[in-house]
Amino acid sequence: MAITAADVMKLRKATGAGMMDCKKALTDADGDFDGAIQIIREKGKLVASKRSDREASEGVALAKVSDDNKFGAIVVLNCETDFVAKNDDFVKTTASFAEKAIEGKPADLDGLKAIELDGRTIADHVTEQTGVIGEKIELSFFAKIEAEYVIGYIHPGNKLATLVGFNKGGFDAQVAKDVAMQVAAMSPVAVDKQNVSQEVIDKELEIAKEKFRQEGKPEAMLDKIAQGSLNKFFKESTLLNQAFVKDNKQTVKDYLASVDKDLTVTEFVRFALSE
């Protein structure tokens, strides 16, 4: 049967595939719309299989927060090239996954992949996009925060995203954004020193002791000197104790206290591509 331009456009809108791919799929399916969609999906599976060993190190990292600011999510969709990552449709696809994460509040990445979007799972959408784009596409990261107040920040370029949860709301949103940008810029390892894992502490102490040992410090003094280095590490690498980037005369903890003496950060998530 004759394939019209309207048929091609309808299939293109439904799948995101190129004009020629849509026309070929409709031709192969003898004009059957559902059959053409299935052909495009199968192509995606084939391309995904062929490119499974490729490295998808580029992509988009987006943070999204619910309307009531009680729940936030970071979603990362990877691809092979920066050219694809900067494509508006690719960014919109990632944004649609993030929106579904806010709606569905999945427990983990597998839960996000299982959520339905337009009658198909997000995992199926990813496979289809692999066929449409011709690159390895991978939904690689999902994280969430639930708190009394959650803020998200996306650094220009969509390569870095953060989420920060606070113990209360009712304060200026710019304050929350300042802290989210602090997390983006300074990459803290934990909220406060009590949140740093013992594994990290032990590693920092061992690095410090070895450093001072190489400098010829007496063995009996190493533990005490290393403790001083650990305290410096806490100051530089835990969010609340870091110097506030917009005013390094105060810490982030001091900045929050100047807004509300009881205001603090409960948790944060930071994801950066190619770091």
Rank of each mutant, 00 (worst) to 15 (best):
Ala2Pro: 01
Met9Ile: 12
Lys10Pro: 01
Lys24Asp: 04
Asp32Asn: 14
Ile37Val: 15
Gly44Thr: 09
Lys45Asp: 14
Val47Arg: 00
Ala48Asp: 05
Lys50Pro: 00
Ala63Tyr: 07
Ile74Val: 07
Asn78Thr: 05
Glu80Gln: 12
Ala85Gln: 02
Asp88Val: 10
Asp88Ala: 15
Asp88Ser: 07
Phe90Arg: 05
Phe90Glu: 10
Thr94Trp: 06
Ser96Pro: 09
Phe97Asp: 04
Lys105Tyr: 11
Pro106His: 06
Ala107Gln: 09
Asp108Lys: 07
Leu109Cys: 02
Asp110Trp: 02
Gly111Gln: 05
Thr127Tyr: 00
Ile133Val: 15
Ile133Trp: 13
Glu135Phe: 07
Leu139Glu: 06
Ile145Asp: 02
Ala147Val: 06
Glu148Asn: 14
Ile154Thr: 10
Gly157Ala: 05
Asn158Lys: 07
Thr162Cys: 12
Phe166Arg: 03
Asn167Met: 11
Lys168Ile: 03
Gly169Met: 13
Ala173Lys: 10
Gln174Asn: 15
Val175Ala: 11
Val179Trp: 10
Val179Ser: 10
Ala180Asn: 14
Ala184Trp: 00
Met186Asp: 04
Pro188Gly: 03
Pro188Ile: 01
Ala190Arg: 14
Gln198Ala: 11
Val200Met: 03
Val200Lys: 01
Val200Ser: 00
Leu205Trp: 01
Glu219Gly: 06
Glu219Cys: 01
Ile225Glu: 12
Ala226Pro: 04
Gln227Trp: 06
Lys232Tyr: 01
Leu240Ala: 05
Phe244Ile: 10
Asp247Pro: 10
Asn248Val: 04
Lys253Thr: 08
Lys261Leu: 14
Val265Arg: 02
Glu267Ser: 12
Phe268Trp: 08
Phe271Asp: 02
